[in-house]
């Protein structure tokens, strides 16, 4: 019973990691860039959503209409998608053709820049996203008594959204001409562009989709956590990046799978680490390792399967 609850908690967090990881994996798949600023894009998504909701319904609003919530979140996510494209145009595009590490450092620079701009705009304090009444607290399904498992509307909606967006992405990448262009670019950009694929457009779309999902993921993470500040992107970004690598970087279903695995393992760690006696000192192993467990699993899996769970082996990198 308790195990089930931990697992459910883990799944709920894991799919959010997965949503954000998709942004990493798509960008990496196309241009082999670890987009360190992606976490900050997610943070911006949450910030903008909170701002819009504050403007529309007042900063102290207790309950806001569900439709308004969806509209403003979508608007913010679309803006964020546009911002992703802008990020690529301003920061990364001039560096196509130069060393990958230069692009990585640019991404780090962007991350620092965005974080501190966010502080200057929104302040350093924690922020909350107002949600429709009962959205995160009302149990749709309650197993056990007051202290039992609760599944709320929030959980159901993120699951539905994840399923919908994964199917949408599958359709986009596998079934459309544009998806074919994307896959071709990922395999061999030079050949793809010779075949008439417009690389810039493919890259821009990748950034848009990644940032859009990242923004929704950022909002959901902020709601799931309870509050957020300008630093939320940093660590979420690292975990999501780890999830993307775990699942096989470049693979979209892999990113989701990686996110879920890390989420679930972390939740189990929170629940059971302290039950394991510490070999050297009295008491159990600290739950402080919760965040290390995800990375440990990542390292183990990479050792067993260097290309990640669903990744394909690289060609010329033997």
């Amino acid at each position: 019973m308790l195990f089930l609850e931990y697992t459910l908690n883990g799944l709920n967090t894991g799919i959010l990691y997965g949503l954000i990881a998709i942004g990493y994996t798509m960008v990496y798949g196309i241009i082999q860039l670890i987009n360190f600023a992606h976490g900050e894009i997610c943070m911006l998504g949450a910030m903008v959503t909170a701002t819009f909701l504050g403007w529309a319904f007042g900063v102290d609003a207790i309950a806001i209409p569900a439709a308004g919530f969806v509209v403003f979140m979508t608007l913010a996510a679309l803006m964020d998608g546009g911002f992703g494209i802008l990020l690529d145009k301003i920061a990364y595009k001039p560096l196509r053709g130069s060393s990958r590490l230069s692009a990585l450092i640019t991404a780090i620079g962007m991350s620092l820049l965005l974080q501190n701009l966010a502080v200057m705009i929104w302040g350093a304090g924690a922020n909350t996203i107002k949600v429709p009444e009962g959205y995160t607290s009302t149990a749709i399904l309650q197993i056990g008594g007051r202290l039992g498992i609760r599944i709320t509307f929030f959980h159901i909606s993120i699951w539905l959204f994840t399923i919908a967006s994964m199917s949408g992405l599958y359709f986009l990448v596998q079934k459309t001409r544009f998806g074919m262009a994307m896959r071709a670019t990922a395999q061999n950009p030079t050949a793809a562009s010779l075949m008439g694929v417009r690389l810039d457009k493919v890259v821009a779309t990748t950034f848009f989709v990644g940032s859009f999902l990242g923004a929704i993921g950022g909002v959901a993470v902020a709601i799931n956590k309870g509050s957020f500040d300008y630093q939320i992107g940093l660590y979420i970004g690292l975990v999501a990046f780890a999830a993307a690598v775990l699942g096989g970087i470049g693979s979209i279903p892999g990113a989701m799978l990686g996110g879920i695995i890390i989420g679930v393992v972390e939740a189990w760690a929170a629940g059971y680490l302290s039950e394991i006696p510490h070999p050297l000192v009295e008491g159990g192993i600290s739950t402080g390792y919760k965040e290390a467990v995800g990375f440990t699993v990542l390292i183990l899996i990479i050792l067993l399967r260097p290309q990640g769970l669903l990744g394909s082996r690289g060609g010329d990198r033997a």
Binding site: T106, I108, G109, M110, S111, L113, N116, M120
Partner: peptide
Amino acid sequence: PAQVRYVLFGMILILVMR
């Protein structure tokens, strides 16, 4: 504001790389 330091720092990284 003190954040300007990090904003500048980020910008310098980006510009040097650019």
